[in-house]
């Protein structure tokens, strides 16, 4: 085999692996980001403007997020079977248990700081997921953390709306970006 033929074969390998990774990522990650982006956007806007009524809104949004996630997992399982889904679920469960422990031990955390705490906890989850499976999630998590901290310092009166925009809006935009195959 000559050098050109070897180069062509390696190019086939590169294209096929890139195509597959993108298709698998698109099947699950993109839709998941959009679903949780909607939950985040609507929920945090509710926290900013609804006051005490926000509890019911979060209940509805959480049900929407969990049902949507289940549908996406079932759909992508028909394409690629893996044990990752179980491990991802366990990871998020453990993350929220640790978040609750920190909240309990270091608390009480009130008002806007509570929103910021949740935002940073979830962003940390995306950073870990990025290191584990999909690099774009790493950058999404780091960006949301940085922007959340900027909003906390610069516009504290509108923190809920700001977190809705950078967190929820960021996840929705990232989901659309992934589905269009730009990453």
């Amino acid at each position: 085999m000559d050098r050109n033929e070897a180069h062509e074969s390696l190019e086939i390998v590169r294209q096929a692996t890139d195509l597959t990774r993108q298709a698998v990522a698109r099947a699950g990650t993109g839709y998941m980001l959009i679903i949780w982006g909607i939950v985040w956007l609507v929920g945090f806007l509710g926290s900013q403007f609804l006051g005490d009524a926000q509890g019911y809104l979060w209940l509805v949004l959480d049900v929407f997020g969990i049902v949507g996630t289940a549908v996406v997992i079932l759909k992508s399982r028909s394409q690629v079977r893996s044990t990752h889904g179980k491990r991802i679920g366990i990871f998020w469960l453990i993350l929220f248990v640790y978040g609750a422990l920190i909240f309990w031990i270091a608390g009480p955390i009130h008002g806007d700081n509570y929103l910021l705490f949740i935002t940073i906890l979830v962003s940390f989850g995306y950073v870990v997921m990025g290191l584990w499976f999909s690099p774009p999630l790493l950058y999404i998590g780091l960006s949301i953390t940085a922007l959340a901290l900027v909003g906390w310092q610069v516009i504290p009166d509108y923190l809920g709306a700001w977190l809705a925009l950078v967190g929820g809006g960021g996840l929705i935009a990232s989901g659309i970006f992934i589905l269009r195959g730009r990453v």
Binding site: S9, V13, A16, V24, V80, R81
Partner: peptide
């Protein structure tokens, strides 16, 4: 080495050992 099989095997190689593709 056959190009189509190379594409098939390359795709399958992106999965971990406990994963499979439809």
């Amino acid at each position: 080495h056959q190009p189509v099989r190379l594409r098939i095997v390359s795709s399958l190689s992106t999965l971990s050992e406990d994963e499979s593709m439809e």
